[in-house]
Simulated scan of single mutants.
Amino acid sequence: MNNSLNGKIALVTGGTKGIGKAIADKLSNAGATVIITARTKPEESLNGQYFIGADLSKAESAKTISKQILEKYGKLDIIVNNAGANLTPGGGYSSLTDQDWDNELQLNLMSAVRINKALLPLMIEKKTGVIINISMNPAIQPIWEMTMAYSAAKAALNAYSKALASELGSKGIRVNTVSPGLVKTPQMHQAMENMSRSLNITVEEATQSVINKLGGVPLGRPAEPEEIGDLVRFLVSNEASYITGAIYQIDGGSMAVV
């Protein structure tokens, strides 16, 4: 699929590390001009990608990003709403404050809602575009010890994505959701450390506990971020032109339901 995205302008939020970086690099390698956002600019090379500093948990960030994209490029073909994180402490309902719930909703749901609202007019005007919202398997398989509020926010993102796909299909815009399971990222390691502290167990025990709650991973390993990037690259390409409103689980077979 080299050069399959030539001439396309793509935005990847949270695109400087982990899954977001892998997605941004895959889109760049396929020929797209890629814009990435994060709170801070990384020290390493951006591989020719244009960086916009933004905290997407803040409402004003979407307007800042939209303004810069419009001024610099005048169009946008692809949005990948990857920014998100499990920010809250483990321990279940009693450990979560109203602020914890709000933090999860702002970053994991409202960031995508605001970005899409700000940038969709550029796509609607040209009657073409693709949106990928990055969810996670905890949206449909929550782990109460560590993902209660995060799972609720991602479940809301799934519902929003399906509704948006139904609304925008007649306007030539496709919307799909990619839902990874365990992925080897700094965020995953941090989540395991948080869980280990809250339950007073080792990081290794916390990781194994999560794997056990998932019923195991049939492929026997977490995903590499690049494997998520490969799926996103396909879904934003013309090869996926009849796919919209779908949720793609990419979890090594860990979701043991139909």
Rank of each mutant, 00 (worst) to 15 (best):
T88M: 01
R174P: 10
L182H: 02
Q208N: 15
N47S: 14
K26M: 10
A22T: 13
M148L: 14
N86W: 00
E60P: 05
T207H: 08
P218C: 02
G229L: 06
D100E: 14
S254H: 06
A10G: 11
G74M: 05
Q249M: 08
A83R: 01
I134L: 15
M255H: 11
V80N: 02
L46M: 08
L119D: 10
S66Q: 10
T88E: 10
M148S: 14
G245H: 07
T185Q: 05
V236R: 08
R39I: 07
L120K: 00
A191H: 11
K26A: 15
G90W: 10
G84R: 04
D98A: 14
M195E: 13
L182R: 13
I52C: 08
I65Q: 01
K41E: 15
A256K: 15
L235G: 04
K117M: 03
R233Y: 00
A112I: 13
G172S: 11
I143Y: 14
G7E: 14
G172E: 09
P186V: 04
L235K: 09
D77M: 04
M1Y: 11
S28E: 02
I35D: 05
T64P: 00
E226K: 12
I247M: 12
Q190N: 14
M195A: 13
V80T: 05
Q49D: 05
I36C: 07
M136A: 15
Y160H: 15
Q99A: 12
S254I: 01
V178A: 08
A155C: 05
N82H: 05
G84T: 01
E224V: 04
A118Y: 10
G48L: 04
L157F: 00
G220Q: 09
I131C: 02
I36H: 10
L235Q: 10
A163G: 10
P225Q: 11
E145W: 10
G91V: 04
L105D: 00
Y50A: 03
V183S: 07
L105H: 01
T13C: 02
P180H: 06
K26E: 14
G53L: 06
V236M: 08
L105Q: 10
G215I: 09
T147C: 07
K127W: 03
K184C: 01
N137T: 15
E226V: 11
G252L: 04
D98Q: 12
I115P: 03
A139K: 09
L76V: 11
S57C: 06
L87F: 08
T13P: 03
K75L: 01
I115Y: 01
